[in-house]
Amino acid sequence: MRTHVVMVATATFCIGALSLAHHMPGSISTVKRSASGETIEIIHRLHTHDAELGIAASLGKRSTSLETLVDRAQLALYVEKRFHIAEYSDGKIGKKLALELIGAEMDGEFVLVYQEFTGDLPAELAIRDDILRDVFPGQVNHVNVATGGEVRSVTFSGDDEWQTLTLD
């Protein structure tokens, strides 16, 4: 009887620990016009811990710390390589937009990566967001485009590649 009680207690503890340890791996990117109106701001928000593990795995390093400038810069370059906005017309992916990489900074448990685009977004566009999807198979990336009146969203998971959007 005593062993039975101990086993039940252990099982409950394990389930509790599992649900605590697993938040959904994901990122949120916001594309919107800046207050000055001249540029389009792209802000990627990632969990710091996910990003550190992801960068370490992707660069083949044992550990990373986003507290350091060099690793934040590595993360920024990593994100730049895996996030693209392209023109889209007649069912074809066109030219990729030249997004300028501004930098990255910590914000509590999150890390923010900044990109900027000078000019207007095309009315029809395609987005590709592979951030951390090479490292975490369950990674879900969400992109909100809020340049017009309404917020348009696309989500990337599994084998998703390009997703298209029409802006008004």
Partner: peptide, 25 residues
Amino acid sequence: DRSRLELYKQDDETRDMMADMLATL
């Protein structure tokens, strides 16, 4: 309101250090 990105860009020292590091990498 000004966004995080604009506040970040305003801080010349942080931005320059990041730009140098990105160029080096």
